[in-house]
């Protein structure tokens, strides 16, 4: 993991938070809950138990009805970074490093942005870290889960409501992708699926013949890597990507595919651009 590159990028970046109310500790971002902020959010009829201080007496005078002013809290939204800890993420050292860098960059940028980053490592042994502990947790993360992300999520603590959820994975597993994306989007105001793929995932080199071994399950497949087989892989990979992208969109999320071999700066300026904005753009 190139922590120096992450450190260089953090000052100039900010997370692209969704323009919807958030939840979280007291902060600067408009919350979904009614609060005492100055910014008016809405009006509604008074209900017993409401704070009488929020009654808009001018409206009462105009209409003769009790109308309540609803103001939203300004919160510091939580940012959850979920890192897939399955073995396929360590298909190559570069893929593992890239996944760590994306997760660290997200957490660091969030922290600098005043958000509360939480890192969840969905590995064989689930890990949870917050704030400055994220870096150490990432450095210690082992990609050792012998199953895919859907199964690893079951071992994690329940995902809490948050402002932004960034899931770093290769998303190369057989699963009900719409259901997975809906699960990941639940409770989150925004969802980014950061897909880190190795060059061999994108463009397998093939060979004379090979015994293909699944990195997670260890299942093997005898296959002669002919052009037809490689083309079929490419077809099925494209179909998988289309399905994943569609599922992410239906969950109001976004799929960002990062090529592990690219430098982090290039990724930020390229395929991860929807997640990382220039700091001045906010």
């Amino acid at each position: 993991m190139d922590a120096a590159a992450v450190a260089r990028l953090v000052p100039g970046l900010a997370l692209a938070l969704p323009r919807v109310p958030h939840r979280g500790l007291l902060g600067e971002v408009r919350a979904t809950s009614a609060g005492s902020a100055l910014e008016l959010h809405d009006f509604r009829a008074y209900q017993p138990g409401d704070d009488l201080r929020q009654v808009d007496w001018n409206a009462v005078a105009r209409t003769g009805e009790l109308v309540l002013r609803i103001r939203q809290d300004e919160v510091s939204p939580r940012v959850e970074v979920v890192l897939d800890g399955s073995r396929s993420m360590a298909l190559s050292p570069r893929k593992a490093a890239c996944a760590r860098e994306v997760a660290l960059l997200t957490a660091e940028v969030a922290a600098r942005q005043g958000l509360s980053p939480t890192l969840l490592v969905a590995g064989a042994r689930p890990e949870r870290a917050q704030g400055q502990a994220c870096r150490a947790a990432l450095e210690a993360a082992d990609f050792d889960a012998r199953d895919g992300l859907p199964e690893s999520l079951g071992r994690l603590p329940p995902l809490r409501p948050c402002g932004l959820r960034v899931v770093v994975s290769d998303f190369l597993f057989e699963a009900d992708l719409p259901a997975l994306c809906a699960r990941l989007a639940r409770g989150a105001s925004g969802l980014f699926l950061a897909q880190v793929l190795d060059a061999e995932d994108l463009d397998p080199a093939g060979g004379d013949g090979a015994r293909l071994v699944d990195s997670e399950s260890g299942a093997a497949l005898e296959e002669l890597l002919t052009d037809e087989v490689l083309a079929a892989y490419t077809r099925r990979f494209a179909e998988h990507q289309r399905g994943l992208r569609g599922a992410a969109l239906r969950a109001r999320g976004a799929l960002l595919t990062a090529r592990a071999q690219d430098a982090l700066g290039a990724l930020v300026a390229g395929s991860l651009r929807p997640l990382f904005l220039a700091a001045g753009a906010l």
Binding site: L197, G209, R211, V213, A220, R236
Partner: peptide, 25 residues
């Protein structure tokens, strides 16, 4: 020998499978 010499680890074996069932390990 050829099969034994070159095990290739892949991220997603299911993408290599053909529609018809094939022999796995």
């Amino acid at each position: 020998l050829r099969r034994r010499q070159k095990p290739v680890v892949v991220s997603a074996l299911f993408l290599w499978r053909r529609p018809s069932p094939r022999a796995e390990a």
